[in-house]
Design a protein around this nucleic acid. Structure first.
Length: 281
DNA sequence: CCGGATGTTCACCT
DNA sequence: GAGGTGAACATCCG
């Protein structure tokens, strides 16, 4: 599930429910879930006493800004609200991977449940921060491909798909000979689009996902740019990456919802891809 | 029960 | 260096 839209739901949930709450402790029972050398002890030490002050997102990456307890202690001679370097805590980077969800006080955002049959399995709670008010922010992730890290390198990700302009898209397309779907899924170029969103975007823009990125003409570039925007907006309203029009037909033997032609199924950019050979050219 | 597939990312190879 | 391949994981489905 987790592509940009699900990450945004999680971000909004955190923004709504976790800002201003202070971390009393961390449960990181799965060291494998911590990346870039982070250890259970290390994350416990770094986050205890910190307060979440902002929830950001870049592509699929969640970024929680914190400030340390020092900011809560008023010191003489320093005006209230002034920012000092040592007030800033680590940035908590959460990645949902294939099956991760964020739970606040045990509740997720309103998107559909994956592995619902066993959703309460406590072993799936790979990472939890406990707040000093008794609540919590947890990552539940059956497949364990999500990740937690501190101060993630935000520059490894390209422009967020929701911020992308036509001019940026043009310039990026011109530099890649990869199949345009591989191009669009490359998080270092444009961040946020995954397998399902890409198939829907190409279906809506009537472009074959196998086309070399640089082969798109001006009109196709405009269509692709529009489809990214409308797909994100429309599927966002509907409830997530899996609510696309193509989704119902996205299985072996499926037919194009627009013109009824049998869909092609192939691997493009390393991922299973469905498209209509009649109207996507 | 087995094989194949599943929303992502990363290391590694050409 | 760009682009492709397979691995990491745990579960689900036929």
């Amino acid at each position: 599930m987790p592509e940009l839209l699900e990450a945004e739901s999680a971000r909004a949930l955190i923004e709504q429910r976790a800002l201003g709450r202070t971390i009393a402790g961390v449960d990181a029972p799965d060291a494998w879930y911590l990346k870039r050398g982070l250890t259970p002890r290390g994350v416990q030490r770094a986050l205890t006493g910190a307060t979440i002050i902002r929830a950001r997102r870049k592509g699929k990456q969640l970024l929680l800004d914190t400030r340390t307890g020092a900011a809560n202690v008023r010191q003489p001679g320093i005006p209230a609200g002034s920012e000092r370097d040592h007030d800033l805590g680590p940035v908590v980077g959460l990645h949902l991977g294939m099956s991760g969800r964020v739970l606040i006080d045990g509740e997720a955002a309103g998107d559909p449940l994956l592995y619902a049959s066993n959703a309460q399995n406590p072993a799936w709670h790979r990472f939890t921060v406990r707040f000093d008010d008794g609540g919590s922010l947890a990552m539940r992730d059956p497949r364990r491909l999500g990740a937690v890290e501190l101060d993630p390198d935000e520059d490894r990700l390209g422009v967020d798909a929701l911020e992308l302009t036509l001019a940026q898209l043009r310039a990026l397309l011109a530099r890649s000979r990869a199949p345009v779907k591989a191009f669009l899924m490359d998080q270092s170029r444009i961040a946020g689009l995954g397998n399902l969103l890409c198939d829907e975007i190409f279906w809506r823009s009537a472009i074959a996902p196998t086309r070399p990125a640089m082969s798109l003409d001006a009109g196709e570039q405009v269509r692709l740019n529009r489809a990214i925007r409308t797909t994100l907006r429309t599927l966002g309203r509907r409830g997530g990456s899996h609510t696309g029009d193509l989704m119902v037909a996205r299985e072996p033997g499926g037919n194009c919802p627009r013109d009824g032609a049998p869909l092609v199924r192939a691997t493009v950019g390393g991922r299973t891809t469905y498209w209509c050979p009649l109207h996507q050219t």
